[in-house]
Design a protein around this nucleic acid. Structure first.
Lengths: 183, 183
DNA sequence: CAATTCATGTAAGGTGTTACATGATTAC
DNA sequence: GTAATCATGTAACACCTTACATGAATTG
């Protein structure tokens, strides 16, 4: 999805709570927003350098770090402003890409076994995702009273729960239809 | 999502039924698989040229076409083989990107009005998508007896119905929670 | 007669993934 | 002592989007 470039805003959104290193950012992203928007190191480190050049964040070295040097980044006033204007913009439509549906769509002549196996693997993957997001959601539920942020975090976890459940329900229905056609 | 390069296989999958032009392919994609994998002209035309060079498709000019010249492409034996091996490969995990969740996640301090408006716009969009996919699904339902392909097409439309419905249900629940927090 | 659709393609630029390179510290 | 984790970054490449360029035929 070129032309969006949300990467710097994701970073600034995280830095808006506390200073973090590139490595920290990657971990935060992995456990929270990676379900709906993932980032790699190859995006994070260059974006941090660019944000620093633009005066959106400032860098300083963590004195308490052992081992490799740790660079912490903090958001500046300009960064906060930029983050806010981005938040006020309307959101672009969602982008999805399901290779499983591509192979299902074109794989009618493959025999139902192949298609059944494919859907079963998909369903198992989604069961795992559902478990993960439910743990996360349960954590957030405990903190719902603590300010407006937690409700919003909770809503994104709830989204995941709805979607993963829908994947699983579709799988069950699809397997039923394929099984019936097989006889 | 670089490194997948499913574009040529999508094209060959479509050509496996009948010869088509680049323009035709774009239209087919739009009404069928665009819900889970879209392609632009900037991908289709170069991919067709490359497939021709690789001997996967052959090109000939449509004699019956009026106006601009129309180039039809047909799949070759090599192309059919390549398509089949791709179909037998396991599928890569799904890739999703929801800008709305990004802005929800970071937008807790914006005030619930903004967040409510965002979700309402999202929900309307999904209502439209749901209507579209239901029309498509109804068409396919009529043809379910006509060979194994139609069941598979139907399953992808069913997927869309499940997902769009889940989006809408989540929206309703999220709006309820935001409304309650607002009081 | 104006707008839309038919029809093909290229070029530029941005985004995202993967592999590579490096090395210290901690846990088992 | 070996594996995993901490930690930073670069480079190459592939992919995708957008804008551009062109022009005929059809529909209202």
């Amino acid at each position: 999805m070129p032309k969006s470039n949300n990467t710097p805003y994701i970073i600034m959104g995280l830095l808006n709570h506390e200073p973090l290193s590139g490595y920290d950012i990657k971990k935060r992203v992995s456990v929270t927003i990676s379900h709906f928007w993932n980032l790699g190191y190859g995006q994070i480190y260059p974006a941090l350098a660019q944000l620093e050049r633009a005066g959106m964040v400032t860098r300083y070295d963590d004195p308490s770090s052992k081992g490799p040097e740790k660079h912490l980044y903090a958001i500046t006033g300009d960064g906060k402003e930029a983050l806010k204007s981005w938040l006020l913009l309307p959101d672009d439509k969602e982008h999805v890409r399901y290779e499983i549906l591509l192979k299902l769509f074109f794989g009618g002549r493959l025999g139902s076994e192949k298609n059944i196996g494919r859907i079963q693997a998909f369903s198992s993957r989604q069961e795992k995702n559902l478990k993960t997001i439910r743990l996360f959601k349960a954590e957030l539920e405990k903190m719902l009273g603590e300010g407006p942020d937690h409700l919003n975090y909770y809503l994104t976890a709830l989204f995941g729960e709805y979607i993963y459940s829908a994947y699983i329900e579709w799988s069950r229905e699809a397997l039923k239809l394929l099984g019936a056609a097989n006889k």
